[in-house]
């Protein structure tokens, strides 16, 4: 009898659970239906092409599609143009990204203090973002062309003309262009983040006679760590996108100090060398994942108590 009762109780208890499960699946189905267009778009324009790129990197050519495993990757690694491009890209990113983060952070700190004309300075620093690329190129050509303004000034002072785009000075010009274009945006992000630091924490630190450096390092930087991560990643991406300006200034085959991975990939694409292009793209993607993964780990370590 007891057993029957307990069985009856179990049966009674399972009916509401089934209803709950059914409701959950129904909700999930509806959510899925709303998400489907976005998921479809991401699949078609990101996921599927990425899989196609991996496929191309593993075959000998897109017509016969013979599987060659890692042969294309080995060829790319051994290609001297790729080696030069990778080294130039790495060098530029290692210099440009930290500079973009540090300088924009310092500018944000400065503007966060109540200096005169702060809002006007903000507008000035943001204005490069509004300028079309063609205008930027024109300006830099006027300035840095062999017969441009900078060389004219140098000659006034008795110096020799410098071929800014076709010498070892070329990366400096590109660095200046990159910083000029991106500092304003980074600075705005930092300014917004600075505004979220709780004043109470700063006041308590001040009351406890902490030095400005300690307050800066242990409070401000800690609170800014998610933003620093974000700005670093955005700057890293922007450092790759500088190819557009370099291409417009110097063409398909620039001076060797300006030759980057994007040049390599752009040129191999035009020559229909899909295997080299795909292999290089995957190598670059893997490196980016490693770098960004490392940044996330660093941010987790330094910023973990902020989240807690």
């Amino acid at each position: 009898m007891k057993k029957k009762t307990s069985e009856a109780n179990v049966k009674k208890a399972s009916v509401p659970r089934k209803k709950a499960t059914k409701r959950i699946w129904k909700t999930r189905a509806k959510l899925g239906a709303f998400l489907a267009p976005s998921l479809g778009g991401v699949s078609v324009f990101y996921a599927v092409p990425f899989l196609v790129v991996i496929f191309y990197a593993l075959v000998d050519n897109p017509i016969s599609k013979r599987f060659v495993f890692l042969e294309n990757f080995i060829n790319v690694f051994q290609n001297q143009a790729f080696q030069l491009a990778a080294w130039n890209t790495l060098k530029f990113s290692l210099v440009a990204v930290p500079l973009a983060v540090i300088i924009s952070l310092l500018m944000a700190f400065l503007l966060d203090e109540r200096i005169p004309f702060a809002s006007k300075f903000r507008s000035v620093y943001l204005s490069p973002m509004m300028v079309p690329i063609a205008s930027i190129i024109l300006v830099f050509q006027v300035l840095f062309n062999y017969n441009g303004v900078i060389n004219v000034v140098i000659e006034w002072f008795g110096g020799n003309q410098i071929d800014w785009f076709k010498s070892d000075w070329a990366p400096l010009v590109v660095l200046l262009l990159f910083l000029w274009k991106n500092l304003g945006y980074n600075m705005i992000l930092f300014l917004a983040a600075l505004g979220t630091i709780p004043r109470e924490a700063m006041e308590v630190a001040l009351l406890e006679s902490n030095s400005a450096w300690k307050m800066f390092w242990h409070i401000k930087i800690r609170y800014l760590s998610p933003t620093i991560l974000f700005v670093t990643i955005m700057s890293l991406i922007s450092s790759f996108k500088v190819f557009r300006e370099v291409y417009l200034l110097t063409g398909d085959y620039p001076y060797d100090s300006l030759y980057t991975l994007q040049h390599f990939m752009n040129n191999t694409f035009r020559q229909l060398d899909y295997q080299k292009l795909s292999s290089a793209a995957i190598i670059m993607a893997v490196v980016m994942v490693i770098i960004i993964g490392g940044l996330y780990i660093a941010e987790n370590h330094f910023g973990k108590d902020m989240e807690e």
């Binding site: 290609n79 003309q161 060797d256 390599f264």
Partner: peptide
């Protein structure tokens, strides 16, 4: 008359070298 032979030759050498190595 804006550049010397050495400058031009070096730049051409650099750029064409990249082109050839890319196609290897």
């Amino acid at each position: 008359g804006q550049k010397s032979e050495e400058e031009v030759a070096d730049i051409i050498q650099s750029r064409v070298d990249i082109y050839l190595k890319e196609n290897m």
